[in-house]
Design a protein around this nucleic acid. Structure first.
Lengths: 358, 358
DNA sequence: CTGAAAGCGCTTACAG
DNA sequence: CTGAAAGCGCTTACAG
């Protein structure tokens, strides 16, 4: 084993300058794209830099350019695979723009104040909030501070902060229509977080579709987007004397847990005894054990829109709330009884598109 | 909608100083824990700071302290839920030490060079590599630069870089013993990434346990820790004339996919027709659809050890490779036939502990 | 305890 | 194209 190595300080531009026999400015210009520098000087600097193992200090650069090239991503819970997938795509897309991700995760929503404080101290160039809470005060303070914020997969009531979402209301509606067309006559809903816009919109759409068919009774329990709570909610519903024929679970993360409870605790066959539909089209929804009929939230398009908004606002310096809404599709799998018509096959996936659909 | 807001520059310590009628040094001292400042001056500064909405600029502070309080976490693939879980715990633990996570994800291993370059430019205080590749050259360069590096869930051959792992060899061994005790007589292995230490160690242990029982034939296919490749590997094995009775899949992420192929494509009953065991004890392993008998990798202890090593080396400035190996346990569920003895119940979980076991 | 001053490693007008 | 110099917003000896 090697002995302990004492940390030695990194090479600076001045050292490179001396070594190359040029000014420190020349070194800086060599590493600043578009700066005015002759090929000859540049070559000398590059050689010296390589020899000494020089890398520009991004911290020092930030201080003077007022750009950290760091985007804060706030993502409290990663258990729902939807979010890791988002994170990976964000990492990819931001790296392509030469930005980096400062990740805030693993805290409880109630402890968000210190998080916010930290994030402001790092002078991040932008903030992406993919967490389910902590946004209202936070985003207001950011707007005041001039830092672009984008809410990912959520909106606030007053729409004062930029957001990227999918058509949750339409998605909920479509699921309602799909289940109705499949001949179901009684319905349940396992809700997500009560104060989340996704939950509210999905349920609103679902309920309106049923209402148009004259159905106003929906058995509702809440799962708060948590597996454990969804299981409890499912047990309550399945123990009901009049168990609904069809269940809309507000996201796939919960739907997976609900399916397990239905099958392994209540012996229900899916979809023969019970139809289940979900939302997000997340990884496990596609696994053969589940095959959940679900509405997609296209991560790639959502992330692209998020990064676009952020880049625009960083470049222009103008922070005007923009709201991007991305369409999703109802992907048909095996967790719910099928309607007779309206299912089309596109790129190997079965999509529900009713005639003159919503 | 509000009109565009022009970004205004943040408040500086000098502005606060002026507003409070003290020197800029006094402002700095107010926000430096342990600095020499009178309660009275402190109060004045705090009041002024609050009024102006001042927050110390962490970037400027980094430049002078030579501490960014940023830890780079390199985690290429997040599909395996083990890693998001690790990430969440890392976020929590590092935040408790007042450190932050700069996340590098969403790139292909082959594109790791630019990643490394970026990470060095930010003068991170430490690096956690939880990615499965890119470590050898990278960690060497970091040692030279004096930046502590910890390999998470992997080691390199020469052991020149600190690492935190679990007893993968013992885990593999234990799984072999467990399957033997369960009466299985023919075995298969679906491998992870060939050049990964986890894969190598797990297989070595597994093979040695079988060898001790006189069994030297193991059907091996590789899944490279990917779902899709594991499915292909499983299909090959299940199509074999002499299908093994028991299958060790190198991690749960693949095992889940393999179980689906077994059940839904080959109509195999688990564990009646086929026993499957996995590794990691990741979320889906515990889901009722799978119930995978698996060896745990205790995330909390692993992350704690990782952060400990990093903090030690950052504080001391001495980078000496340390290797922390954490024990795991074989959690018994329903995916494999059970041995007659050796299963004990601890804290509601069933653990396999053979008499005089390894 | 306090303030004036030097300096961290860069970028960027400015003058040549 | 190039260099000398100012300055980004802090921390930290230093002197009082």
């Amino acid at each position: 084993m090697d002995g302990g190595v004492i940390k030695r300080s990194p090479v600076t531009s001045s050292q490179v300058a001396e070594h190359a026999g040029v000014s420190q400015s020349a070194v800086s210009r060599t590493f600043t794209p578009g700066a005015s520098i002759s090929p000859k000087t540049r070559a000398k600097v590059l050689a010296a830099a390589k020899e000494l193992g020089y890398r520009p200090n991004a911290i020092a650069r930030s201080l003077i350019t007022n750009r950290s090239r760091i985007i804060a991503v706030v993502m409290a819970y990663l258990e729902n695979l939807f979010y890791p997938d988002v994170l990976e795509e964000l990492g990819r897309r931001l790296a392509a723009e030469n930005y980096h991700v400062l990740l805030f995760t693993g805290f409880k929503d109630r402890d968000s104040d210190p998080v916010f404080d930290q994030l402001m101290q790092y002078r991040v160039d932008g903030i992406i909030l993919a967490s389910t809470s902590l946004s209202s005060e936070l985003s207001e303070e950011c707007t005041v501070a001039g830092i672009p914020v984008v809410l990912f997969n959520r909106t606030t009531e007053r729409n004062e902060t930029s957001s990227v979402t999918t058509r949750n209301r339409e998605g909920g509606r479509l699921l309602g229509q799909f289940l109705l067309a499949g001949g179901h006559r009684s319905f349940g809903y396992i809700a997500g977080l009560e104060n989340s816009s996704t939950n509210r919109d999905r349920f609103t759409g679902f309920r309106s579709a049923l209402a148009e068919a004259g159905i106003h009774d929906i058995v509702v329990r809440t799962g708060n987007y948590s597996r454990a709570e969804a299981e409890t909610a499912a047990r309550e519903i399945f123990a009901l004397e009049e168990r609904p024929e069809a269940l809309f679970v507000a996201n796939d993360h919960m739907a997976v847990a609900v399916m397990d409870v239905a099958r392994y605790e209540f012996g229900l066959r899916i979809p023969e005894d019970l139809s289940i539909v979900g939302y997000d089209d997340v990884g496990p929804a596609r696994w053969q054990s589940y095959g959940i009929t679900s509405v997609t939230q296209p991560i790639s398009a959502m992330v692209e829109a998020t990064v676009d908004i952020l880049m625009d606002q960083i470049e222009s310096g103008e922070i005007e709330a923009r709201h991007k809404i991305i369409p999703g599709e109802l992907v048909v799998r095996s967790s719910a009884r099928l309607p007779g018509t309206g299912i089309v096959e596109i790129d190997g996936r079965r999509i529900y598109r009713p005639e003159g659909g919503s």
